[in-house]
Computed example of a mutant assay.
Amino acid sequence: MPRKPGITDDYMITLYKKGTSFKVMKEISGLSDRAIRNILYKHKIEMNREQYSGQPRKYSVNEHFFKTWTHEMAWVLGLFVTDGCVNQTNSISFAQKDERILRMIAKHMDAENNIIPPSSTRNISTLIINSKILKNDLKNLGILSNKSRTVKFPEVPDVYLPSFVRGVIDGDGWVQKTGYVMNVTSASNKFALELLKVFQKWKLRSEIKTETTKNGKEIYRIWVKGKETLPELANIIYNNAGESYVYIKRERMTIHSGPKSNQIDFS
């Protein structure tokens, strides 16, 4: 099996030392069992029988996390819809450049800090959580593997919708540094249209544009525009946020909020 781009020996060793099972390592790397064993042998890494047999080491996690709506659950779900992965094995994973966000996810889910750091060829960190129950609960919420073009907007209770949207923006959102525009990119037409409806429901100046990638596939950008509009969006999504947000995006979104004395304290 060909090794996927960016997968180095050091990265595979890091995965292994983090307790990742061979099944998950195969999926991440594209390598066979034998090829993974050869890497470990070559670097004189002692193998754990449970990992080799496909049984990951046991990491604690709240396996009922996605069963009950909370602001923390809604935010994590928004991040997962955009930056998460349902693996073929009984595991899920989150990928983020900002490792603080992964630590926050692990904290909310009562999960051990099983974060794989970036390597010389990969500039993002990954949080891997092994749980068949979590995977099934995400399925019940309509989130499956290979979801990028088919994912639907989940049925989020109105009270938790701002936290979910904050997670979506933290995952696939971009905020202009001058604070005039924000957009979320999605490969799913259904998801994009429903997100647009949410922004319109909140009476925000918003629109959707379709673009075609170099390989001929369509993507959708949902825009919120205006120096008055972005602070309005911030007033909605950062209520009940605590520390669960990407700092730079909130900072840019609130540039035009006016004097600090007139701003809402969301912390």
Rank of each mutant, 00 (worst) to 15 (best):
G167I: 00
E232K: 15
T213K: 11
K58D: 12
R3W: 06
K17M: 11
E218C: 12
G30H: 11
D110S: 12
K97W: 09
K227Q: 14
K107Y: 11
A234M: 03
T150E: 12
R252W: 09
K18H: 11
K4V: 06
K147W: 02
M253R: 00
G171K: 00
N90W: 12
N136A: 15
Y52M: 14
K132P: 09
N123P: 01
N90M: 10
N146M: 12
T121W: 09
S163G: 08
N183A: 02
R100K: 14
M104V: 08
R103H: 13
P117K: 04
L141H: 02
I124A: 06
D172S: 13
M73F: 00
W75Q: 00
I7A: 05
I255W: 05
K17W: 04
I116M: 07
K23Q: 13
G226D: 11
D98N: 14
V181H: 13
R3V: 12
K214C: 12
L15N: 02
I28R: 12
K139R: 15
G179W: 08
I128Q: 04
H108S: 15
L141T: 01
T68Y: 13
K214R: 15
K260T: 10
R37D: 13
T229Y: 05
S188N: 07
I143Q: 01
V184P: 04
Y245I: 00
E27K: 06
T185S: 10
R57L: 13
F66Q: 01
E72C: 01
K197A: 11
S29A: 08
K260S: 13
K214S: 15
N235I: 02
Y245R: 00
L193Q: 14
N114Y: 01
L134G: 00
K107C: 10
M182T: 12
I248T: 11
Y16G: 10
I133M: 13
R250F: 07
R122L: 09
M109S: 03
T210L: 08
L40T: 05
I128D: 01
S91E: 11
M1I: 10
S163W: 02
V184K: 01
Y41S: 09
